[in-house]
Write a protein that binds this DNA or RNA. Structure first.
Lengths: 395, 395
DNA sequence: TATACTTTATTAAGTATATTAAGAAAGTTG
DNA sequence: CAACTTTCTTAATATACTTAATAAAGTATA
């Protein structure tokens, strides 16, 4: 579309109205006009079109404000559907979501360890195909893909997927050719952030950081409701934030990276260290190698050492997050990934650390929230990636 | 202006054209049309208006591309003028700048130590008044104010100015009433960043971070050419980035803040420490208390210990900047403030540290540049704050 | 040099879409 | 039930874009 034309302006106005309805949940034409600074007739004609397209619908009448009752408008969440794909380390998750982020159906497929380029790509198309076959009557409008590793969002290519050990996968091209739908691909940690920002109405158009602590530590950054990627798309690499110059050596060669202290493997390592020092713990009797999951399990059972290790992890995370808060001053920090499961032991020290170490009252009060989408974070983020194209003013 | 109206669209298109001319320096109507995706008649009519307003002018004819020679358009840099004010710790700098950032005239006034609210405010108006009197024929379009400390940009108030020990100064209100011009107020460190981004054409619409190392350490963040402030306007507080958990105690109570290692006072302190340990240096014979400036001076003369201290400072800064690069992935990092003067000894170690500690090739290659505006950084940033209102599409 | 072709810029006519103004529809209030 | 509100639509008008045509000023070539 020609920029700066009437159609362009209209599409923006349309997005504004549509997004208003989405974020408000239920709103009248008159109210939209007031809040968006568009005139009533403009809103009226746009609403008429949106109704015709099936993107919104009229619900019941609202309460009178001293005159005619307003007809409330709501999103027609069941009008269109999006497919979200989350390519994890060991499995691919496919979901069908409606416009509100409700998951209609899902499917998971394990990835064989030494999968080849073509079989991976056809695995994706087969998965989508299967899901679509189960719901032939639904109208799909796009496919979003959350991919671990390095992704080129512009071309929709996976540049490097370490867990699959594959390079240069033309995911977008492949899926577009197969289904003739809009396809978008992004990094999974970033999409986790977008998903939380998008489907948490209080976060709409805010700036926030979603931290994903698992085997590594990554952050997705959302600024004014939009994904921030940086110059080369590699923003948010907080795993290698150096916070302890005289700390342990990291795989990257530097000392005291956050990852050496607070990642899943680092937690396990720390525990082994403490056990070897002879500290008492129910984990001492285990034969298998210690994992973060085991530590969490034992902590739940009450093991003091396990609790201590998790507490320590929270403290270090809190320090890194305080640094992030001082730099970004986000409206909220979201904690996701494997570690989020251990929230009972980790969230508290994170919050306490931020409160004690942040230098201003506003920074101290930065809300630290648990990811609300759980294991669906990235796949719903992929859905949000498609939705943002429809709902957000392009400009 | 009503959003989503014809006038709104036109003002955006106008800004687009104007900004294109500014960033390109010299460009024809046809070229603008091609690059902005506006049609030739649209560009033509907008250009006509801009000419009438005196914002641009026609220069000579360009080279033929096989047909009629294009009339080149350039900014009419001498058409309008902006007043920039930089309130520093000990003095206020007033400048008059044209549209290109060329300084036409300037003036400095010392601040008496225990200045009162009202006398400070009238000092500002008097300064502006004086400068304007010297250039009665010029047409002024706005006043930008760079203020140290905590600023509320929306209301144009200085919430707290530590060096003046004043609170809640209604700068915007005061100046607007006095001169009836557009007035904007922002934090000086942020404006340093905006100034560099705005008057360095290669930085236009890029994301960059300008680090200001002086008594404290602050950073201004520019994302897509616009100042990023965060939720409460306090983004960029990197002075208290904790990078050495077992490091020295900072005034904020935490350990190993960047400021404890790399700020002006920290450099001096470190030097004193080394001298007390008995390390040989030409500074050992000095009677007065050691300052960062003195260290720089002696380093220039060849003092080994002074050089070493500065080198160390650069290394630590490099570590903090590497953290920033990983988080933000900016297109460039700008170094400004007092430390920038010691570039000969500090820039190299910064670059080397980033190169050796960054984890990706793209991060390693992040350009680290010296602030190009010198002591006028903040005042020109204040000018840019006004200019951005005219040149940038508002949307 | 004349002719044809390019590129640049403007003019003229047409069109999309917003605005204002007026009114219809559906309430509430006294 | 009359008078007033609020909500929404219709009709007329205005704005600023688009396309199409043309003018202006150059280059290339017979």
């Amino acid at each position: 579309m020609q920029r700066g034309s009437f159609q362009w302006m209209k599409s923006i106005n349309k997005s504004i109205v549509l997004n208003k309805i989405r974020t408000e949940g239920s709103i009248s034409r008159a109210q939209i006009a007031k809040e968006t600074q568009l005139t009533p007739p403009t809103v009226g004609s746009i609403v008429k079109e949106l109704l015709a397209q099936g993107l919104i619908k009229e619900s019941q009448l609202g309460a009178s404000q001293g005159g005619r009752k307003p007809t409330m408008l709501v999103l027609n969440t069941k009008g269109f559907y999006i497919i979200g794909i989350d390519v994890g380390p060991a499995a691919v998750r496919f979901i069908i979501s409606d416009l509100s982020g409700s998951i209609v159906d899902e499917m998971e497929q394990a990835i064989t360890h030494s999968i080849q380029k073509n079989s991976f790509l056809s695995m994706l198309t087969n998965g989508v195909e299967q899901l679509m076959q189960r719901h032939k009557s639904l109208q799909f409008i796009g496919i979003g893909v959350a991919m671990h590793g390095v992704v080129d969002a512009e071309t929709g290519m996976s540049i490097f997927a370490p867990n699959l050990n594959l390079r240069n996968l033309p995911i977008k091209e492949y899926l577009e050719n197969a289904f003739h739908l809009e396809v978008k691909v992004e990094n999974d940690a970033k999409l986790l952030a977008l998903g939380e920002a998008w489907f948490n109405n209080q976060m709409t158009n805010k700036s926030m950081i979603a931290v994903n602590v698992g085997r590594g530590i990554g952050a997705g950054i959302v600024i004014n409701g939009q994904l921030y990627s940086g110059e080369h798309g590699i923003a948010g690499e907080i795993g290698h934030m150096m916070i302890d110059l005289h700390g342990e050596k990291c795989t990257c060669g530097n000392n005291g990276c956050l990852q050496t202290i607070a990642s899943g493997p680092a937690i396990a390592e720390r525990m082994v260290e403490l056990l070897e020092e002879g500290n008492p713990s129910s984990l001492a009797s285990y034969q298998e190698p210690v994992t973060a999951e085991m530590i969490h399990k034992e902590a739940t059972k009450g093991d003091r050492l396990a609790k201590e290790v998790l507490n320590e992890t929270g403290t270090y995370l809190g320090i890194a997050l305080t640094n992030l808060i001082h730099v970004f001053n986000p409206s909220a920090i979201i904690i996701g990934g494997g570690v989020a499961k251990a929230e009972a032991f980790i969230l508290q020290p994170i919050k306490e650390t931020i409160r004690s170490k942040a230098i201003s009252e506003q920074a101290k009060n930065t809300p630290v929230l648990l990811a609300s989408l759980g294991e669906y974070g990235s796949s719903l983020g992929a859905v949000a990636l498609i939705l943002s194209d429809i709902f957000e003013p392009v400009v």
